[in-house]
Structures are given as C-alpha cells and as structure tokens.
Amino acid sequence: MEILIATIVRGVGIGSTYALIAVGFVIIYRATDVVNFAQPALVILGAYFNALFVFNYGLPFPLAVVGSMAAMALIGALTERVALRPMVGQPPFSAAMVTVGLFFALYVLAARLIGSNVITMGDPWGLSRVEFLGTTVGQVDIAKTIISLTAIAVVGVFLQRSKLGLAMRATALDQEVALAQGVNVGRMFGVSWAMSGALAALAGVMIGTAGGGMVALDAFVALKALPVIILGGLDSIKGSVVAGIFIGVAEALTRTYQPGNADFLGANFDVVVPYLIMVIALMVRPYGLYGTKEVQRV
C-alpha cells in the first residue's frame, strides 16, 4: 500500500511535468496549427539557463526560474519570428518539419552548452522527504505537482479572463476573422510561442529537480508530452492535464510493478508505456479525450 501511494505520488509529479510541456504544445497548436516538435529542445535549454543563473550568477532559485522562463520566452518568440512566420499559409506538415529541423539545431546547441555534464537546478527540495498519507514521499514530487498545476491554472485564467487571452482564443478560432476584428494575429503567434517557451523552461526545471539532475538526452523524456497531447486531444488544455497525469501515473506504476511481475516485457518497459497508451488511444478515439473532431471538406 505504501509503495502504491509513493508510486502514485511520483507518477502525478512527473505527469504534471508532462502536462506542463503538453500545454506548451497545445497553446502553439491552437494559435498556429503547428505541432512544435522543437518543444523538447526548449525544455532542456530552459533547464540549462536555470542552472546557469543559479550557479554562475548566484541568483536564488525562484528568481532563477523566473529568469530562465523570461529567457526562453524571448527565444521562443524569436524562433517564431525567424523560422515559423515564413511558414504561414504553408501546409501544416511543412511547418511541423521546420520545427523538427529547429529541434535538431536547438538540441545540438543545448547539448553543446550542457556538454556531458549532469546539471542540477539548485532547488531547495533536494532529496528531502515528507509524510503523506502514512508514507514518506519526495518533497520534490509534491512541489512539482503544485507548481505545474498552478502554472497551468494561471495560463487557463489568463486565456479566459484577460484581453490578450481573448485575442489569442479568437486567433485560435479563426485567424482571418480575428484579423478583421483588429487582432494583431502575428503578435498573437509570437505571444503563444513566448508562453510556450516559458512553460517549457519551467518544465525543464521541474524535470531537472528530480534527484539525478539533468543531461542533454533528457530532451527525449520531454518527447513523452506527444503521447500526452494525443491522448488529451491536440487542442485541449484540460485534456493535457488529465492525460499528462494519467500517463505519468501509468508510467510510474509500470516502473514499480513490471519488474518481477511481467519480466518478459523487458528492461525499461516503462519508457514505451506512454507510446503504447497513445497507440491504443488513437485506435479508440482518434481525436483524443477532449480534442475537437476535425471537420473534413472536399
């Protein structure tokens, strides 16, 4: 029982991180109809900036997080302006491939900056543990969950309540109509990418806080947000949260219980669980739990 609770808490922690990355995907997808495959590279770059601010400039951890989010917001907006703006009006596939190209360029940059080191985030939680429902769980998992869900809630409120959020939703609904109503659509693209970049940075920090720190290869961990958005629906923030936590918990449960119970599935089977869930989800509900069904016209 205690193992189960600890596993679920860990799963919710990592799952909320996936949700955070997935929300970044969703914001960009809603605004521009592009699936941003470069997001994982933004995630590790964000973590790198955070480590840089903490250890090289001596900033306190919260300030460093804000700083790295700001830096990644800037990089996100810049990326959009340079590489994605020329793709407006091109088929979504071309734009998606541009982000794949960006992924490699940015990933190599991040891998170069990080090198073969393990970077840590300088977070206050470390390996300390806390009592929870009669067992001890990592503080960091609780912190991850709270911070990620708060950030997503802030994004949700911003989109629902603020004027800029309204403009972004209008852009997502119909770019041309939004343009006719006086919304600066280009700027909305930039804002979407900036928000997404900031969320990616936060997610990077969250991944890096886990006991082991972070290496450049963790970009491929961030790719697990892709199954999350497929399961939740490409254009649903609510879906990202639900699917993120579901996949995080499923992965954690597999990691705990598969060795010993189902050894024939092989070592590190938990790594492929999100993708298997995605395949099943696509078979049953091709547009995810909360995604809108695509309208097809001749």
């Binding site: 699936v35 979504p92 596939f93 998606a96 958005i229 395949v279 696509l282 091709p286 695509e294």
Partner: peptide, 8 residues
C-alpha cells in the same frame, strides 16, 4: 491523418 499520423 496529418500530424496525428506523424505522432503515431
């Protein structure tokens, strides 16, 4: 179709 297929 499209991007869903790419991700699948």
């Amino acid at each position: 179709r499209g991007l869903y297929l790419a991700i699948l």
